Simulated scan of single mutants.
Amino acid sequence: MSLKTLQEIVAETKASLHCLTPEAAKALMSEHSDALVIDVREPGEVAEKRPAGTINIPRGVLEMKITEQTTDPDRTILVHCATGGRAALAAASLTKMGFRDVSIIDCSCDELIAQFGAA
């Protein structure tokens, strides 16, 4: 048995979860005003550029910190990162925790900023 690459793991994870374009994410947010948009990049990355309307919970502490933001399993949660890989792994983890309405915003951070504006 050979080891899977990160790219293979991310691709498999994305295939099993709901992925959105930045445009679709913005439209979904207009329907769900309480949607939580989580940026799972590291704080240093967020300090350089940050999409408007996002909160930063780094991927490494997401499972420990998410309940500070919501304990509602039906709350709409959108997850993004720099390119979509960490967001996919984070969304899978949130789903395993019991959150039922989790989507990946599958784009670069710059594409998201183009749609949402910069914070």
Rank of each mutant, 00 (worst) to 15 (best):
A24I: 06
R59L: 12
G98Y: 03
C109M: 12
V10T: 11
I104V: 13
C107L: 02
N56W: 07
I104C: 04
E68F: 15
Q115G: 02
R75L: 09
C81P: 00
A119T: 03
V10N: 02
M29T: 12
G98W: 03
I113C: 04
L62E: 03
E48N: 13
A88P: 00
T5S: 11
A52W: 09
A47Y: 01
R86H: 03
H32Y: 14
L20F: 03
S2R: 15
E111Q: 09
A15Q: 07
M97E: 08
L94K: 06
A114D: 14
V46C: 11
K96S: 08
R75E: 04
V40I: 06
T71L: 08
S93D: 06
F116W: 09
A92E: 06
S108R: 05
E31Y: 10
I55Y: 06
F99L: 05
D34L: 13
E31R: 12
T95V: 15
A90F: 00
S33C: 06
L28S: 05
H32G: 11
E63Q: 13
D106W: 10
E111N: 04
G53N: 07
T67H: 15
P43E: 03
V46G: 04
C81W: 01
F116N: 04
I38W: 02
I113V: 09
C81G: 05
D74M: 15
A92L: 02
R75V: 01
K4V: 09
L6P: 02
V10R: 00
M64D: 13
R100I: 09
S2I: 10
T21H: 03
V102P: 15
Q7I: 15
Q69C: 11
M29K: 12
I105A: 00
V46E: 00
I9F: 10
S2Q: 13
P22D: 07
L36D: 01
T83W: 08
A11K: 02
E45I: 12
F116E: 06
L78Y: 08
A47K: 09
P51F: 01
L36H: 10
L89T: 10
E23P: 11
G85T: 05
A118D: 09
E23G: 13
H80C: 12
H18G: 11
C107W: 00
A90W: 00
I66T: 14
I77Y: 05
A11H: 04
G84N: 01
D72I: 05
E48D: 11
I55V: 15
I77P: 00
R86F: 05
R50A: 11
K26T: 06
K4I: 08
A27I: 10
A114N: 14
E68H: 14
T13G: 07
A90N: 01
E8M: 06
A88V: 01
T71F: 11
A114V: 11
S33P: 07
C107Y: 00
E12Q: 14
P73H: 10
A119S: 09
P43M: 10
L78P: 13
R59C: 04
I57C: 05
A118G: 09
D110T: 15
A35Q: 04
A92S: 09
S108Y: 05
D101E: 12
T21E: 04
A35D: 10
E23N: 10
A35L: 04
Q115A: 08
T13Y: 01
